[in-house]
Each structure stands twice: as structure tokens, then as C-alpha cells.
Design a protein around this nucleic acid. Structure first.
Length: 114
DNA sequence: TCCGTGACACAAG
DNA sequence: CCTTGTGCCACGG
């Protein structure tokens, strides 16, 4: 009732996490891409923050930077893990980066099927 | 409410 | 190719 209206705290984070859940296996999405899908192509940085606080039951490894590389700054082991997990689901790396032209998620489809 | 921080993106040197 | 600087946004203290 009277309380509703304003966005609840961490609403953006939740939106990011839910979107990441929809990224198909074998494909990847960029921070900027997710931000754009959420309505703000300039919120890429916020997406990164949301990912740092993302639950472990989502395919977080499918989120990479605009260059198709892993951004995980200051987390070498996490970087390795992300790459391994992506390769395990079929994503190939070329020169340390993912071929976005080939593996980039096309975005959510309201009417799946063709 | 203000301020600091950061898994970004982009341009320039 | 790498480094640095700037702009944007949301979250947490």
C-alpha cells in the first residue's frame, strides 16, 4: 500500500542475478549488455558490483567484459575458475578471450521458438 | 543524506 | 599492446 512505490534496496542486484540466470549454457553476456537489457547501458559498473554479491547458484561465469575477457580483478583463482567453467560448457577462448561475435547471448526472448 | 568503493566502458597517449 | 583518466550507476557504512 502506501509503502510501495520506491525500489527496494538491492533491487538492481536482484534484477541482474535473475537476468544472468537466463543466459543459456555455452553463451556469454557482457556487463554493459546486461545493463542495457535492464534499461541503463551506463550501469555496467553497477552490474559488476551486483555480480560481486551474486549468489552461487547462478551461472556467474557467463558474464565477461566488453572485450570478451575475464575482469575479476585481484582474484586470479576466480579468473581461472571462470575460464575453466566456461570451457567445460563449450565456450572456446582465443588469445585469452571469448569470441563475442560467436558466443554472445542474443538476449532474453519473450517468445522462445525460432 | 553524504561519501567512498568497484567483476565496467570508452577515449586518448 | 598497455596505462591512465573520465563518466556513469548502485550499494553500503
Amino acid at each position: 500500500m502506501a509503502k510501495s512505490g520506491g525500489p527496494a534496496p538491492r533491487a538492481f542486484d536482484h534484477a541482474v542475478h535473475r537476468l544472468v540466470r537466463r543466459i543459456p549454457r555455452g553463451t556469454v553476456a557482457t556487463y554493459g549488455q546486461l545493463a542495457a537489457l535492464l534499461g541503463d547501458c551506463r550501469a555496467a559498473r553497477a552490474v559488476g558490483s551486483a555480480m560481486q554479491r551474486c549468489p552461487h547458484d547462478i551461472p556467474w561465469q557467463r558474464v565477461v567484459n566488453a572485450r570478451g575477457g575475464i575482469s575479476l580483478r585481484g582474484n586470479v583463482s576466480g579468473m581461472i575458475t571462470q575460464r575453466v567453467r566456461l570451457e567445460q560448457e563449450g565456450v572456446q577462448f582465443q588469445r585469452g578471450k571469448v569470441d563475442l561475435a560467436r558466443c554472445r547471448w542474443t538476449g532474453p526472448r519473450r517468445h522462445p521458438g525460432r
